[in-house]
Structures are given as C-alpha cells and as structure tokens.
Design a protein around this nucleic acid. Sequence first.
DNA 1: CCCTGATTCGC
DNA 2: GCGAATCAGG
Length: 189
Amino acid sequence: MSWTDDRVEVLKKMWGEGKSASQIAKELGGVTRNAVIGKVHRLGLSNRSGGASPAKSAPAAKAKPAAKPRVAEKPKTAEPEAKPATSVPANKPIGRPKLVVTAGQPLPPQPSANEISPEALASVREVEKKAKRLSVMELTEKTCKWPVGDPATDDFWFCGLPAQAGKPYCEAHVGVAFQPMSSRRDRRR
DNA sequence: CCCTGATTCGC
DNA sequence: GCGAATCAGG
C-alpha cells in the first residue's frame, strides 16, 4: 500500500485526534504501526505541536561510532518550547466522532446473551464492585469507558478504572468487550 | 509481557 | 520516501 493523499489525510486526522499509531495502522490497513510512525515523522508531525516549528538546528553528527552503529545518541530537543497557549483547554470530549451517544444504546459491546468466558464475566462483576463510577464527563483517554447500568436512569456510570493502553476499557472490560472470536490468531503481516 | 512512540538505516 | 528492526519508556 502506498501513502495516497487520502490515506495521509486519514493519518493526519487520526494522529491529531490522539489516536495511537497502531490504531491508525489498523484503520488504514495494509500498513504496520511502524509505517504509520515513520510516515508521521516524515510528515513532520511527530510531535503534537500544531505549530510544528521544525528546529532545523543540528541534525548534525551523523557519525558512526564503532561502538553502536545504531542508535548513536538521543539528542532530546531540549528546546524551550514557547507555548502561547496559556490555559489548558485540552480537555475536549474528543475521541468519539462516530460513536456519539445518541438516544439508543451507546453501549458498543455489552455482551449479555453471548458466550463469554466465565472468568471474564466474573472479572466484570469483580470490577464493577471496585469501579470508580465516573460520570461521562470524568472520562479521559486513560479511564475505562465501560458503561454500567441503564443510561436512562441515574443509576448509570462508567467503570473508570485505568484503561488499557490504546483501548477504551480497563483490562477486565477489554477482555469481555473484544471477544468476537473464540481466539484471535491474527498474526498479520 | 503488553503496549506506546522514536530513531536508524537498508531498500 | 518507505518501513522493518530496534530502542526506550509506561
């Protein structure tokens, strides 16, 4: 697969939305997360800085120390980042462009009458006992967004436990959320 | 061990 | 330009 303008656009969009490289790669298909990251860097939007002032300073020494051919050094750009943006408005309820909570059931997987691992189910109940019971506005990218209860009533909350990296749910809920197949032997590539 | 992004470098 | 291999953290 090549980086068509269209795909690049998707890449930019998703990256801008904070999607992980692997997520983007999966979405695009035909590319690995490495490819995505590589492209991101080539596009110069590796950093989240929208401004993207490419400090052209010193790529410098491309020297090849005999010791370590690879990974010579890691010159962290210790540039003092001038951020005009004062306050911290970065708390936008982004992340669910498609999965908007409409009148229906926003609950994506809610496995109820399905065949789920008994252990996983037990884990869910276990988790629900120690869940933090967050409201929708308290959710972040780092909190489990597993819904519990009836959204139509006030007896509705979200798990809120630490979410698995890149996933919208905590470990336990990820287990029951994504289990379309009995086993995923997808070793893409 | 899972994941994340970051970097290098052969192609 | 591309991306696998690798590195470095969480």
